[in-house]
Design a binder for these strands. Structure first.
Lengths: 180, 180
DNA sequence: GGTCACATGTAACATGTTACATGATTCG
DNA sequence: CGAATCATGTAACATGTTACATGTGACC
């Protein structure tokens, strides 16, 4: 049920269309969830059937119509109840770690190349996150409450990327040592 | 396909039964993957059909028979090829972060209680990981290669848990400030 | 004339979760 | 005598991925 609630959380912050949601899940909402547009459209239909969200068709000049979705009273109630229910930390599932675990069956160069790719990707994410921090969250304590909460999820993204970067460094170092 | 490869990685390290695999996925293999016993049995059948693994039925005194699975030559080949294919960093999907993002719709006490629960859970994991490090990886450089790679996944687990702990601390602090 | 951004969808398949089902032995 | 551990499975359902499908307007 968590995709449903992630969508509710995004729509409570700002009503938007399925297309926009997909972009947000690929951007700032991506700090805590990811989903493809197909998943999003399917879930939006279901949520509308259940009356957790409602839509309004907006006509646009020179562009296809879009459905603007917003959370209903019932939907917000459901979100509140879901938040109050305890949940477990998300279990880890990570391809790169599987590769490292079985690292001895593959050539060292392959592993190193993959690690460097990941390091690069994490570095890029980190710099995007740090830019966001600079631009929008200079004085987080003075922002309205919803933004303060958003900032906390951004902070998680930042320390998450730093954790990966430090680990990649460490592994690359370790592999280069044993190679000699 | 990654569940298949996570199973191969575990079986290459040590052949075992489905039941044992389920326990390992809940323990040390859990540094990088998690799966329920139902998923594991289903995947094992498929892998055996494809001849990536083979099984041998072991009779035991006073206990049900068990099937001991090991990776075939073909299976190891497939694992190698999969490792060589580049992959993307795993996208984040985390219930707790959804809750924080939408934190303003719920009472602060609810959020705080949840954060403290998660902090506790992460602390427990961390201490298990640190114990493992103490017991098995005192001198990682002197261990055989496969164990050195395992140690690197354990290190990831350790920094991952520390990242979460630090973040929980930070969020709790922040919430307590605004409450006053 | 081709590609990109906008905008929404269907269908098939792979993966993951929850509940149900069985049956022996060991420990308290 | 009840619960836990050992051991393997089926079925139904929820979630996520990949491929396919459609159509306009803007930009180069």
């Amino acid at each position: 049920m968590a995709l449903a609630h992630a969508i509710l959380a995004a729509l409570v912050e700002a009503p938007c269309s399925g297309y926009d949601l997909a972009k947000r899940f690929d951007g700032s909402v991506g700090f805590f969830w990811s989903a493809s547009h197909q998943q999003i459209y399917r879930e939006l239909s279901k949520l509308e059937d259940q009356k957790w969200i409602s839509s309004e068709t907006i006509q646009q000049a020179g562009r296809p119509d879009k459905k603007l979705y917003s959370v209903t009273g019932l939907g917000e109630q459901q979100l509140k109840e879901w938040i109050a229910q305890p949940c477990e930390p998300t279990p880890i599932k990570d391809d790169l770690l599987v590769k490292i675990f079985a690292g001895h069956v593959a050539p060292k160069e392959t592993i190193l190349a993959e690690l460097e790719q990941h390091q690069k990707a994490h570095l890029e994410k980190l710099s995007i996150y740090e830019d966001l921090e600079q631009h929008y969250f200079q004085n987080p304590q003075e922002l309205p409450e919803p933004q303060q909460f958003q900032y906390l999820t951004l902070l998680n993204g930042i320390t998450y990327e730093r954790h990966w970067l430090a680990w990649c460094d460490r592994v690359i170092q370790s592999l280069n040592q044993t190679k000699k």
